[in-house]
Design a protein around this nucleic acid. Structure first.
Length: 269
DNA sequence: ATGCCTAACTAAGTTAGA
């Protein structure tokens, strides 16, 4: 089973690339962030035509998250982060899909820092860490997938020089990500690529994509019940090279689940 | 210290992203 997370950066304006990616990579579950569309402009019909059921939590202009299931309708468990139910931003969606609990998150960016946006990021992150603690030892498999807006270490960025004051690299942001790992969550990309540079985001400025000047900020964390099933992980960098691409690329894991054949690797011709 | 690039909203200029 393949599970992916992808900050689409506007689902309306990048729908053709999204459909091309779904067709080619065929993830069983896909978490999307930054829909930038209200609920009534979510392209449910187009996704259905592509073979995907979907649940979504959108809002006008910004934010917005969705969970897609290949051939299945995800069952919504939560539409907001516990403790942050009054959030005016659509940043969290949790659903049951194919026997897994899937959390799709779009953690606040937090820039500029210091300031109210950074305070909001840290408060949101604290709530998320507290919620994660309730899921780490669940007997059910859980994946926390999304755009965390955190560069975990200096090994997760091409060069820190022009980012030192950025909210994504601040110790306060990194401490909270480290707290998740401390709880026992497995950072799937780091589990598979122990020492390699892996990036999931390349900003639109200064030819950063063309020079592979990237950041790793999209993460899939696995709880104790799920971590032993991890078989592979990667980033679909070809999507970042499409015309009108998002500044993020889809990031994925491959799991071997008992009693379930992996549709992506075993049924493809 | 800021712009670089891109999109949404709306109708030229601002806000936000990271």
């Amino acid at each position: 089973m393949k599970i992916a997370t992808f900050n689409i950066n506007g689902i309306r304006s990048r729908l053709s690339g999204l459909l091309e990616w779904l067709e080619r990579e065929s993830p069983d579950i896909a978490c999307l962030q930054e829909l930038k569309a209200p609920n009534d402009r979510f392209p449910a019909a187009e996704l259905e035509k592509a073979g995907y059921g979907a649940v979504w939590q959108g809002q006008a202009s910004w934010n917005g998250v969705a969970i897609l299931g290949k051939g299945v309708e995800p069952v919504v468990a939560r539409r907001a982060l516990p403790g942050f139910e009054d959030d005016t931003h659509a940043r969290y969606l949790e659903a049951a899909v194919n026997g897994l609990l899937v959390a799709c998150l779009y953690l606040p960016n937090g820039n500029p820092q210091p300031g109210p946006k950074f305070d909001y990021k840290l408060a949101w992150f604290d709530c998320f860490v507290a919620h994660a603690k309730t899921l780490i030892d669940s007997e059910h498999p859980v994946v926390l997938a999304g755009d965390y807006n955190v560069v975990p270490t200096d090994e997760d960025i091409y060069n820190t020089r022009s980012w030192l004051k950025d909210a994504l690299l601040q110790p306060e942001s990194r401490e909270r990500y480290a707290a998740l790992i401390e709880q026992g969550w497995t950072d799937a990309i780091r589990e598979i690529y122990a020492d390699e540079r892996v990036y999931t985001f390349w900003d639109y400025f200064r030819h950063h994509w063309q020079t592979n000047s990237g950041l790793r900020i999209d993460h899939l964390l696995l709880n104790r019940a799920l971590a032993p099933k991890l078989r592979d992980a990667g980033v679909d960098t070809w999507v970042r090279d499409l015309p009108q691409a998002s500044d993020h690329a889809p990031t994925w894991i491959e799991l071997e689940l008992q009693g379930r054949r992996s549709a992506t690797s075993k049924t493809k011709h």
